[in-house]
Design a protein around this nucleic acid. Structure first.
Lengths: 336, 336
DNA sequence: TTGAAAGCGCTAACAC
DNA sequence: GTGTTAGCGCTTTCAA
């Protein structure tokens, strides 16, 4: 019942528990033969170290936190999936990956250097700022993914959302579109802002007029895309193309369009952002922007681990390229 | 830099550290006034308990493990999402939710009662069996979700996949279909077996002949559904309906069908299983079976927590109903 | 109602 | 190479 400790092993091996500790940790200060003998005994006893005890003395928790702005709404399944996958891919066996929504905390009390060897924040909103500042102030090794942080000194890995949105809008213009609507993301999210900025930047550059009516608020989920598209369809002068700020909303938009007996892209072009797993398989396949969440997560986790182990500190911001993925949801129209 | 401990507080309060411990833990053996005074000091010092130390003496890790068969492939984004969401919804603030793929372990060494207060296995395959047995043998509070466990005594929460598949196939038959193909899930997964069984059961009950040619192997991902559907379309005598064993594969199948210039459901009916978030928004909206992952996860986590706290043991198996969700991807044809 | 002392399992000086 | 000892921060007897 009660588990075996290094003292039990010591007794059986006829050595001190210190020697056992040394053997099990591959210390150089030990006779190779004693070491093998002890390891054999440990194995036969199915010894497993007590991590709490080790953590206490080593002052390391072996916990890595992966924090999302929220686990409730606004975080899409694909996003969560890719982030976890990316991080999980690179963390070593000995670490525990703890997943949590920042908005689950009533207070940040439990967030400290004793409980987390390092923290990865997959930040989707400026509302994460207090958390990030708290963690930074506590001196916890910290990396922020996906959202650019200006004031706080942290390692930062982000996609260039704005240039992605710019590229997408430019593409629509090049295909001849002039009445290009935008279905925006969740209010307050930095990505919402960046994508809007990229969209506006392209309109400006190509001297395409922007009309307030061409902008519909969404919140990144399917239903909001559906609802926003319906509002756009009720316009006296409909857009010829719709830039949805993520793929989930694009799916909702396509649904709304189809329900009205219209066809994508023949009657209306639709594009998304994110390149979710399902986007290539929609009908029509969705033209979108690929934002490499998994790669960013992998890179971020690797950086964090390196930092934890070397204490080498570098607060640079790394940008990951977004990429235009052209599929079948945009029609080339006259006037381009 | 170095954190404040109960001894620091004791010094300031002019009491022993024991008294501080009692105050902070709301022990009844303490003068309410001393208690308040101590709590005030702790607050002003921003004291946070060292969980490693507490864990060591209390023999509790405050870690809850959420284990998936794999985090690599075969686990869909929606599945991961709903499971994490469900569990996260009910676990208390003080617990850490640790997410991991079972196949990430080289050995199960680190899986023990000291490191996990409880474990939730979201089991998708019989390959999890060794892990489950290991954890059960170690005496870790354990609940297995999604896959029925027979030999080991564990708490078990599962969907009735087979009756879902039966219900779906029955529905297709009732709509007049006789040549009903099946695109199967990943080999070795229990769900693959159950769904096939439900399908066959319905065919048998309604005296619809089963032909080996009508079965195509998939592995639960989009591409496999696409490939399998293409094989089915090459058949000299095509099916009139296809039962895809999950929604991801159904999406791939629809893609393959559309590419051939055929229409769903006019030329071919397609149904799925799981009711993923995107399924209602596909074109056409997908008829599917809803498997309540989030609810099961929530229920499972609640059970586990109750068990951990009360040590009340009950090894019953709880079944969650699956549900036929009728949308627009099935055509009613003559002969029904 | 409080304190002194012991101990959870482990690692790391320090001595031999 | 190995053992003795101390101590990480906390909870919990036991005694006062």
């Amino acid at each position: 019942m009660s588990s075996v400790t290094i003292k039990d092993i010591a007794k059986l091996a006829g050595v001190s528990h210190t020697t056992v500790s040394r053997a099990l940790n591959d210390s150089p200060l030990i006779n190779p033969e004693t070491k093998e003998r002890i390891k054999a005994i440990a194995g036969s006893l199915q010894y497993t170290p007590n991590y709490s005890a080790r953590s206490l003395v080593l002052d390391r928790s072996y916990n890595l936190g992966l924090f999302f702005s929220t686990l409730r709404t606004g975080t899409s399944a694909g996003f969560l999936y890719e982030a976890i996958k990316g991080v999980n891919d690179v963390i070593k066996d000995e670490y525990n990956l703890i997943v949590r929504g920042i908005d689950d905390y009533k207070s940040f009390h439990q967030v400290n250097r004793k409980s987390f060897d390092g923290i990865i924040v997959m930040s989707q909103s400026a509302s994460d700022q207090p958390f990030i500042e708290y963690a930074a102030e506590k001196g916890i090794p910290l990396i922020v993914l996906n959202r650019e942080i200006e004031d706080v000194q942290v390692m930062n890995v982000v996609p260039d959302d704005q240039s992605g949105a710019f590229r997408m809008t430019e593409y629509l213009i090049q295909q001849g579109h002039r009445r290009i609507a935008i279905i925006e993301g969740k209010e307050g999210f930095k990505s919402t802002q960046s994508r809007r900025d990229g969209y506006l930047e392209a309109l400006r550059k190509y001297h395409v007029a922007f009309s307030e009516a061409m902008s519909a608020q969404g919140n990144y989920d399917l239903e909001s895309g559906y609802a926003a598209m319906n509002r756009l369809l009720d316009l006296p002068e409909r857009p010829t193309a719709v830039f949805c700020c993520n793929d989930d909303m694009a799916l909702g938009a396509v649904k709304a369009i189809t329900e009205r007996g219209l066809k994508v892209p023949d009657d209306l072009s639709v594009v998304g952002f994110d390149d979710q797993l399902f986007s290539a398989f929609m009908t029509p396949a969705l033209t979108t922007i690929r934002r490499p969440i998994e790669e960013m997560s992998r890179a971020g986790a690797a950086k964090l681990l390196a930092f934890i182990e070397s204490k080498q500190l570098e607060h640079e911001t790394v940008y990951f390229h977004t990429e235009l993925v052209i599929r079948d949801s945009v029609k080339t129209i006259a006037g381009g």
